[in-house]
């Protein structure tokens, strides 16, 4: 049954959390986040009609990785240079330094890191697969026309005119008493979980 539903298209970015490998897919009416453990996959759906915002924040993780790769490369390179200048054979140290250089080069080539969040009416969810600013930008470029087709366009005037509700420190007076339910039977039927 492999590939029974080929309705998903891969989106830019891949990332890992503590125990999962995470990717994003473009579905017909939703964004699908697939977290894989190797043996099983977990799915999270964000419907296009519900996505309110995508928030991208640059992080310092990229600089940290540059330091992790660059420091040993520089250290062993410097020691090798000193050894060679003193007439010794620094080949082994050059080789050790060279081991770290590809990591540094790849990290620099991938560009700055970021944290990307998707916001809906009821949640702000991190997208662990979008860890690089370039990938996040590509992701937004891919998603923008899809969301425009579903939700319509949002122009600058709409953004300026949007209702602002500042978060107040004290709760509003109406919230002191719970609302009175007029129709107690107005609840969906309770369904016991299937076992």
């Amino acid at each position: 049954m492999a590939g029974e539903l080929k309705i998903y298209r891969r989106l830019p970015g891949r990332g890992t959390t503590l125990a999962h490998y995470v990717r994003l897919f473009q579905g017909p009416d939703h964004l699908l986040q697939v977290s894989s453990t190797g043996y099983s996959e977990f799915y999270k759906r964000f419907y296009y009609r519900d996505i309110q915002a995508i928030i991208v924040r640059q992080t310092h993780l990229g600089k940290l990785w540059s330091a992790v790769w660059g420091f040993p490369a520089g250290l062993f390179g410097a020691i090798a240079l000193v050894v060679q200048l003193n007439g010794g054979n620094g080949l082994a140290l050059w080789i050790i330094a060279a081991v770290f250089v590809p990591g540094l080069a790849i990290n620099l080539a991938l560009g700055p890191t970021c944290a990307c969040h998707v916001r809906t009416a009821v949640q702000i969810e991190k997208l662990p697969s979008l860890k690089r600013l370039r990938g996040a930008q590509k992701f937004i470029e891919r998603l923008r026309p899809i969301l425009a087709a579903v939700q319509g366009e949002l122009n600058a005037e709409d953004i300026r005119a949007r209702p602002q509700s500042p978060v107040s420190a004290s709760p509003p007076a109406q919230a002191a008493a719970p609302p009175v339910l007029e129709e107690p039977q107005n609840v969906p039927p309770a369904v016991s979980g299937g076992a």
Binding site: A53, R57, Q151, L154, D158
Partner: peptide, 15 residues
């Protein structure tokens, strides 16, 4: 922090 947000019409929609 360096940040940006891409917002969509659902942000303005009332539940």
């Amino acid at each position: 922090a360096r940040v940006k947000a891409e917002v969509f019409p659902a942000l303005l929609r009332r539940a």
